[in-house]
Computed example of a mutant assay.
Amino acid sequence: MKPTVRITYCPKCGWLLRAAYMAQELLTTFVDDLYAVQLEPSEISGRYTVLVDDKIIFDRKREGRFPEIKELKQLVRNQVNPQKDLGHSDR
Score class of each variant (00 low, 15 high):
Leu86Ile: 03
Ile56Arg: 12
Tyr9Glu: 06
Ile69Ala: 10
Gln38Met: 12
Val52Pro: 01
Pro41Thr: 10
Gly64Tyr: 12
Asp32Ile: 01
Glu71Ser: 14
Thr29Asp: 02
Gly64Ser: 08
Ser89Asn: 15
Lys70Gln: 10
Gln79Glu: 15
Arg18Tyr: 05
Asp90Asn: 11
Val31Asn: 11
Ala36Thr: 04
Asn81Thr: 08
Tyr9Trp: 11
Cys10Gly: 13
Gln79Cys: 13
Ile7Lys: 00
Leu26Asn: 01
Lys2Cys: 05
Ala20Asn: 08
Ile7Arg: 02
Leu34Thr: 03
Arg60Met: 09
Tyr21Asn: 12
Thr4Lys: 14
Pro82Lys: 05
Val5Trp: 00
Arg47Cys: 09
Val37Arg: 13
Met1Asp: 13
Val37Leu: 12
Tyr48Met: 08
Thr28Asn: 10
Lys84Tyr: 02
Arg77Glu: 00
Thr4Pro: 02
Asp33His: 14
Gly14Lys: 10
Arg18His: 13
Ala20Gly: 09
Ser45Gln: 09
Arg6Tyr: 06
Glu40Tyr: 06
Ile69Arg: 01
His88Lys: 10
Val52Tyr: 00
Ile56Gln: 08
Gly14Ser: 15
Pro3His: 15
Val76Met: 00
Leu34Asn: 09
Gly14Arg: 11
Arg60Phe: 01
Pro11Trp: 08
Val37Trp: 08
Lys70Val: 04
Pro11Glu: 11
Ala19Trp: 02
Asn81Pro: 04
Leu26Thr: 00
Pro82Gln: 03
Phe66Val: 01
Ser42Trp: 01
Leu51Asn: 10
Gln38Phe: 05
Arg65Pro: 06
Asp33Ile: 03
Arg77Lys: 15
Ala20Ile: 04
Val31Leu: 09
Thr49Asn: 03
